[in-house]
Computed example of a mutant assay.
Amino acid sequence: MSETAAPGARYRIGAYRFWRRHLTVLRAGAPDPEHTAHALPAVPAAELVTALLPELGERRLREGVERPARAVTA
């Protein structure tokens, strides 16, 4: 509920701010770490996964989520 109570609410909760900051720190020195910190958590969003699962299948979705995650840790 805290993520859907109002438009944009999910981006104002403490957990989102924590993970965004954590990813920004991990990407320090890389091109535009703040953008990556916002974009990467959007990849596995539940509503997106639910919508894409019938079209892309589980294997392709998993690979698509893992690819950018590996780039963050590289």
Rank of each mutant, 00 (worst) to 15 (best):
M1R: 10
M1F: 13
T4P: 10
T4I: 08
T4K: 14
A6R: 14
A6S: 12
P7I: 10
G8R: 04
G14S: 12
A15R: 15
A15P: 00
Y16C: 01
F18Q: 09
H22R: 15
L23N: 01
T24Y: 08
V25M: 04
G29T: 03
A30N: 05
A30H: 09
A30Q: 07
A30D: 06
P31V: 10
D32H: 10
P33M: 01
P33Q: 01
H35Q: 06
H35K: 08
T36S: 02
A37Y: 02
H38A: 09
A39I: 00
L40Y: 01
L40P: 00
P41Y: 05
P41R: 06
A42R: 08
A42W: 10
A42Q: 11
A42D: 10
V43K: 04
V43L: 09
P44W: 00
A45F: 10
A45W: 08
A46M: 06
E47R: 12
V49P: 00
T50I: 09
T50M: 09
A51H: 11
A51T: 12
L53P: 02
P54A: 12
P54G: 08
E55C: 02
L56A: 13
E58A: 14
L61A: 01
E63N: 12
E63R: 14
G64P: 02
G64H: 01
R67A: 15
R67C: 07
R67T: 12
P68S: 09
R70A: 14
R70S: 04
A71I: 10
A74S: 12
